[in-house]
Design a protein around this nucleic acid. Structure first.
Length: 859
RNA sequence: GGAUGCUUAGCUCAGCGGGAGAGCAUCGCCCUUACAAGGCGGGGGUCGUAGGUUCGAAACCUACAGCAUCCACCA
């Protein structure tokens, strides 16, 4: 027997370990159809946050649901080494100990990083257990493990041989703090207030002056020209002449190019090929030298002369001061412009010329675009996110994949010590002759292989044959570029298949005020705290049911409380059922012939619910599925049937049939909610008579058409409406709810035995069935049946009430008549709607007639 | 500059072609042995604005406004 109160903490304690031990999450039953999914691997940077819960709970619900539906489910767990992010954390930790990674050297540093991974990997495992992920630990992978590393090497070498990976000198985004290159999408642009410096450039051999504006004066040491638009009347005559660079006095040619925007700044632009991508393109066009003036930590090099060794901002300040002194500063403007920041370190990214490895994106992206036009495309839920993918795929530039870090997959490129020639190879060459490239790969390079590399690729494995492509992927819209797109193109290129059939996109979780959770705001919510307060089941329920696919949601304590109350409700309903069944009850199948009208009603409602919930589950619409279930549990079962069953139980001959019904309904409810809230549902399930070892050994409830009866539902609804009407009547008239009344049902009983229910729930001393002619009573019309309350009534009140009712009915009838006399409606509305409206009108007319008669009787 | 989403009850949000819904809050009545973390009964909305399509629009289309987010550019 269940305790009186649902205590989530006690309920959740210890269950997970048992499930894992029993092997409930282990895949491999070949008699079943396979269903597979991979976890979005959390970074080993630290503890899990609510975002991970968002990522993994829908997966878990899907996995548990599909298992109950009879699939052989493989859910692959794993973690991501998260190159930059983890390295930054480890470096920070070292910094607190007063050491830098350079003090340690590569090997020792990597040892520290692996220690870090071991520690946080353990924490993540504990948290998976806490949130109840039904992953198959036999299949756990790590992006840096041997298998994944082999896959990475295979992919790199193949792409290189195909000419899809190349090494090149280009302007890349440089993070001067972490001292590594970044890809374009690792740069976060934000509007910063800066200064726009207008400098005076003197034209050689003339008194003329040219004013050029820049936001980054420190790069002027690397300038090679000044550009103007040849259509610009102001400057056209200057093209071909030279100006003095106010930073170092060197002569710069004035060039004309239509790239220059006449209306921006002064219409004259300096060209710094090694520190600006657009200038780089211009320089290539005109064959200018590429002059770097910054080192890898963004300090000035020798070309800056007296400013050498200064940090870029220090130099900027000092240089401007110097130019001002020399009379070459025209003015300074405040200027808000978008500045790139490193996603990881937050520092301002410096565009810089650098030799890096790139993936040539066009051919790979084209393949994705072609695939998405075919019938075997990756389906996005919601659909619109497919556009996010295709737009990105059609515009993205080559992907810079090398990182000047140590934590990651080292690039399998080797340089001949003598000739410097590059050898790209999966296996290590003779290291007496070669040295390996120092750099590692972007962390997303390996996560892009996740769905197939975790299944054993490039080896031919049974897992790969059986479980690939995976069935579904759940992730947030924020990593469609980073992750989803890359998995798709890598998978298409290397396996000729899409990596997953469907992608379910969820939104981000925000704080109560709708703000992004962030460290700087200090508004992050630790799932562990939430679990300690409400239990994981409530959190799981909240996170998957209070959101719409693809839209952000707000964290809400209230909603968690409400989720917990809901679970408490089910808990207590189950408790009541168990009390009613009694000790030693042996579950019996439903005997359809023995069912009473209300049992038929609730079982039919249950079938309807199963049908609808299953349909929503199949579409991964958890909010919709749980909503349908919620209404059934609260309204149909708890508020109505459960109460009615108490009356049924009063008769000995009903006992068996009612018990069987109660048992069936509560058990199905438990099974239907189980994927959402496995811990508490397991607890309830185990307390039910005839329970197996675990709820996980049960099947998902199947729709049974033979129990689905609209007629039975109408009978139940009629009783429900009658009860509601009389209760409302009492409340409105300030009559105590339990004040005894007499009821007359006119003209006759709608179904056998209804009087007992009416009597019990309306505290009726008497329920009679007879044709009522008199209007001297309060009454309610339910179409073919009326119900009257025999009581001393105030005639004025009665009249007022009847008139109110009359007015309402007149409106309804006129609405119906209008609709049904509209030729357009008659001609075009579907037949179902037409019939429904006709029936409704008929009922309302009957009601109206009844009310009119009674009003007439009063006068 | 381009794209997407949002705007519905006091608050947070569902609904997305056939009579406005939920949770919380609010008001009234109930400690009725499943549940007071509860029950029963109420009140509260011209569904952002303006046009259009349709027999019928909160829902579809077009503009506009406000709020978000993403991408691109920014000398």
């Amino acid at each position: 027997m269940l305790d009186k109160h649902y205590d989530p903490i006690a309920v959740e304690e210890g269950k997970y370990a048992g499930w894992v031990e029993k092997g409930y999450f282990t895949c491999g039953d070949k008699t079943k159809q396979p269903f597979s999914l991979v976890i979005p691997p959390p970074n080993v940077t630290g503890k899990l946050h609510l975002g991970h819960v968002m990522d993994t709970i829908p997966d878990d619900i899907i996995a548990r649901y599909k298992r109950m539906k009879g699939y052989d489910v493989l859910w692959v767990p794993g973690m991501d080494h998260a190159g930059i992010a983890t390295q930054a954390k480890v470096e920070e930790k070292l910094r607190l100990e007063g050491i830098s990674r350079y003090d340690l050297g590569r090997e020792k540093f990597l040892e520290k990083a692996w220690e870090w991974k071991a520690e946080y990997g353990k924490t993540i495992h504990e948290q998976w257990a806490k949130i109840g992920l039904s992953v198959d630990y036999n299949h756990e992978r790590f992006t840096l493990d041997d298998g994944l590393s082999a896959a990475v090497r295979r992919v790199f070498v193949t792409l290189y041989n195909e000419g899809l990976i190349y090494q090149g000198e280009r302007i890349i985004n440089w993070d001067p703090e972490l001292r590594t290159a970044l890809s374009n999408i690792e740069v976060v642009h934000q509007d910063d207030e800066g200064e726009f410096f207008y400098f005076i450039y003197e034209v050689e051999g003339s008194d003329e002056k040219l004013i050029v504006a820049t936001t980054r004066p420190e790069t002027m040491f690397g300038d090679t020209a000044v550009f103007v638009n040849p259509k610009d009347e102001r400057y056209r005559h200057l093209i071909g002449k030279k100006v003095y660079n106010p930073a170092n006095g060197e002569l710069l040619p004035i060039m004309g190019d239509s790239y220059v925007d006449i209306s921006f700044g002064t219409g004259a632009m300096k060209c710094t090929p090694a520190h600006d991508p657009n200038d780089f393109a211009l320089a290539k066009k005109y064959g200018f030298p590429l002059i770097k003036v910054l080192d890898e930590s963004a300090h000035m090099n020798e070309l800056a002369g007296e400013f050498k060794g200064m940090d870029r901002y220090e130099c900027r300040k000092a240089l401007v001061e110097k130019i001002k002194k020399e009379g070459h500063l025209d003015h300074i403007e405040k200027f808000v412009h978008s500045v790139g920041h490193s996603e990881r370190s937050g520092c301002v990214v410096e565009p810089m010329l650098s030799k890096q490895w790139f993936v040539k994106m066009r051919p790979l992206a084209e393949r994705v675009l072609a695939q998405q036009k075919s019938s075997e495309k990756v389906e996005f839920l919601p659909k619109r996110f497919e556009k996010v993918l295709t737009r990105w795929m059609s515009t993205c530039e080559d992907w810079c994949i090398s990182r000047q870090l140590w934590w990651g997959h080292r690039i399998p490129a080797y340089y001949n010590k003598e000739t410097g020639e590059v050898l790209v190879s999966e296996t290590e060459p003779d290291m007496n002759l070669y040295v390996q490239d120092e750099d590692v790969l972007d962390t997303w390079f390996s996560s892009g292989l996740w769905p197939f590399a975790t299944l054993g690729w490039p080896e031919k494995t049974e897992d790969f044959d059986r479980y690939f492509p995976t069935s579904v992927l759940v992730t947030g819209y924020d990593i469609i570029f980073f992750w989803v797109s890359r998995m798709i193109f890598q998978s298409l290129h290397f396996t000729d298949r899409i990596p997953f059939q469907k992608v379910v996109i969820h939104g981000l979780i925000r704080d109560e005020h709708g703000r992004k959770m962030s460290k700087s705001l200090g508004n992050g919510i630790d799932p562990i705290d939430v679990i300690a307060k409400y239990g994981i089941d409530a959190l799981r329920y909240f996170i998957t049911t209070n959101s719409t696919p693809g839209l952000d949601m707000r964290y809400s304590d209230e909603k968690l409380q409400s989720a917990q109350n809901y679970l408490n409700k089910i808990w207590n309903a189950a408790r009541y059922v168990e009390m009613t069944l009694g000790e030693g009850y042996v579950p019996e199948p439903i005997d359809k012939k023995a069912l009473g009208p209300l049992e038929k009603y609730i079982l039919s409602r249950l079938q309807d619910t199963i049908k609808k919930v299953t349909a929503k589950m199949e579409q991964y619409q958890f909010g919709a599925a749980s909503g349908i279930l919620y209404d059934f549990v609260y309204d149909d079962f708890c508020s109505f049937y459960l109460e009615m069953s108490k009356v049924s139980m009063a008769k000995k001959e009903n006992e068996a049939m009612v018990k069987a019904t109660l048992y069936k309904v509560i058990k199905d409810i438990v099974l239907l909610i189980y994927p959402y809230c496995p811990f508490v549902m397991e607890e309830i399930y185990l307390s039910l008579p005839g329970a197996k070892e675990s709820v996980m050994l049960e099947s998902y409830p199947e729709y049974d058409a033979s129990l689905h009866s609209p007629a039975a539902e109408r009978n139940g609804k009629l009783l429900e409406e009658m009860i509601k009407a009389v209760r409302g009547f009492k409340a409105e008239r300030k009559i105590a709810p339990n004040a005894p009344v007499k009821l007359i049902v006119s003209p006759k009983s709608p179904w056998k035995g209804i009087e007992e229910y009416l009597a019990r729930f309306l505290f009726a001393k008497e329920v009679r069935f007879e044709k009522v002619e008199s209007a001297q009573m309060e009454g309610f019309s339910f179409g073919k049946v009326d119900i009257y309350i025999e009581e001393d009534v105030n005639e004025d009140e009665l009249r007022a009430n009847l008139e109110k009712e009359l007015e309402k009915l007149l409106f309804e009838v006129s609405r119906g008549e209008k609709m049904l006399s509209n030729p357009g409606f008659l001609a075009k509305a579907p037949k179902e709607k037409l019939d429904a409206e006709k029936a409704k009108l008929e009922t309302n007319k009957m009601r109206l007639e009844a009310v009119k008669q009674r009003l007439a009787g009063l006068k």
